[in-house]
Amino acid sequence: MAQSPSRRTVLKCGTALAAAGLLPISIPVRPAFAAEEALPVEEIADGIFAFAGVDALMTKANRGEICNVGFIIGEEAVAVVDSGGSVAEGRALIAAIRAVTDKPIRYLINTHMHPDHCFGNAAFADTGAVIVGHRNLPRALVSRGEFYLSSYRESMGEALMREIRIVPPTKLVEGEEMLDLGGRTIRLKAWKPAHTDNDLTAFDEKTGVLFTGDLCFLRHLPTLDGSLTGWIEQLDVLKAVRANRAIPGHGPIPADWPGALEPEQRYFEALTRDIRAAIAAGVPLADAVKTAAQSERGNWHLFDEYNARNATAAFAELEWE
């Protein structure tokens, strides 16, 4: 296997140029909020706060604030659900917590591996929070962390990326587990491969609010990075969770439950039907992804950004049926 020793030369050239000041240096852009400014959260239920991210790709301008994040306040302590898409967002989330309570942050729950949900982890380093994740989350971060750190550099910019670290969970969940916040228990459930192979949900037993992570998308096209058939199969199990409201991973908050699952179920059905038909007819992958699920195009934000990718992953998975 031929390797490229001269790539080192390439890199050395780059270093030299950078040292000589010949490279354009990105100018830090003023963040949307100052560091101490609180993320604008709303109280969804008694002691439950959440912030709705924008339906967009992560950028310097939005500081990676594209997913829904939140926190739950117990009698003794606080649990945070997802840290956001940058350390800046993580700090703003901490500021939002501090604006309503001075109780310690006991847990930071990561619903899964994606950068918009856990790039903010490093902000919690000084809070003493234990990071909680799916049993598969550390492995997933190992195989993707370096790629995430480099692939977002262009859109997020050096100023935001500089402080982002891949911080894996230390408390791992397999099956179900309860977190005690004092007079308030949070039921965590680790799912089989669906959106990713490390999806975790958090259910507040006191108010019946379910943080779905990205097992539920509203308005923002679902993205597939785990198993389409696994996701579809587990929708029935998800629906059976007796929640009265949900904080989806993306989309308006709060959402009706289990009605919030209907749009994505419809999309998955269209995608599965079209891809299965293409495979059966012998249509090559590159052609099949151009037409699959186009009937859903008008129903979602970011459809053009993610549908072909979902179709690609779906094709590679369903081909083995």
Binding site: L57, M58, H114, P115, D116, N136, R139, A140, S143, R144, F147, Y148, S151, Y152, S155, P193, T196, D197, T223, D225, G226, S227, G230, G282, E305, R309, A313, E317, E319, W320
Partner: peptide, 28 residues
Amino acid sequence: ASGGCSAPAMKNQDEAMASLGKMKLRVF
């Protein structure tokens, strides 16, 4: 390159290992 969170990594690692070496041939 694809933007963002699409990493060149395994989506379902347990499944990938569980069925290691399985083959399928289609003749069109």
